[in-house]
Simulated scan of single mutants.
Amino acid sequence: MKLGLTFLLATITSLQIALGCDCKQQGDLNEAQKRNYENSELIFMGRVIELNEDGTFKFEILETFKGTKQKYIELKQTHSCSVLPSEDEEYWLVYIDELKNDEPIIISSCGLSRSFRYPCLMNINDLPPPPPPSDAFLQLESEILMSEHRTKSLEILKAEIEQLRNWRSEK
């Protein structure tokens, strides 16, 4: 029995490690923004206009900060470390590392790409507060904390977009 339980736990742990993303901490936000700007081939603000069951989705590009301007771009979720927008995530800031003609274009969950609806940066120590507790008053306090955190994250996103506009105009 002990051997079977040990084997099961080892298998589950190995599976989680195999499926997990190996994101490196981005460090300081300003450094991460500059590094992601320099290392991205395309950066844009866009609106999700199509979500398909095969993991593909399409953006209408509203503003290009770096790279060749285009009206639309189709991307694909290819693995657990690539992003797939949900129906309620309409507007995004997107960083694309590479554009290859023969491979699907992905948004890495390890980068700075994020929706306006969920603007938290998971790899910059910007995690949202934990889920609300069952006590009603504590849940209210938790909702206030989550609201404050989202507001702060939106302000960071706005400042980042302004910085991207500045870097674009300097070129």
Rank of each mutant, 00 (worst) to 15 (best):
C110F: 00
T11Q: 03
K76G: 01
Q163V: 13
T13E: 06
F137H: 13
N36L: 04
N36V: 04
Q33D: 14
F65C: 03
L157M: 10
E31L: 04
N30L: 13
L75Y: 00
F137S: 11
E89K: 03
M1C: 12
C21A: 13
I107Q: 01
W167E: 05
L121Q: 12
S142L: 05
L15F: 08
E98T: 12
F7L: 13
N101G: 14
E74M: 06
W92H: 00
F57Y: 14
D54F: 08
I106F: 07
L154A: 08
E63K: 00
E141K: 13
G27A: 03
A136C: 09
P128V: 12
E41M: 00
L75N: 06
P119D: 14
A159M: 12
I73W: 00
M45G: 10
V94E: 09
D102G: 09
N125E: 15
G111F: 07
I17H: 05
D126K: 06
N101S: 15
P104H: 13
L93K: 03
S40T: 08
P119T: 04
E63S: 04
A136L: 14
K158N: 10
D22R: 09
S109F: 06
E98N: 09
F137Q: 14
L140E: 14
I124Q: 07
K24D: 15
D28Y: 01
D135R: 03
K171W: 10
K158F: 10
M122Y: 02
E53K: 06
I73A: 00
C81M: 09
R114I: 03
S80L: 15
L84C: 07
C120D: 15
S86A: 11
C81Q: 09
L8T: 12
I107T: 05
F116Y: 14
D135F: 09
L84G: 04
Q163R: 11
I106E: 08
I49H: 07
V94W: 05
W167I: 03
C81G: 07
C120V: 09
E87N: 12
D126N: 11
V94I: 10
N36E: 15
P119V: 06
D54R: 02
N166T: 13
L93S: 02
T11N: 06
Q16D: 14
Y118S: 02
M1H: 12
D102H: 09
L138C: 06
F57E: 01
L19M: 12
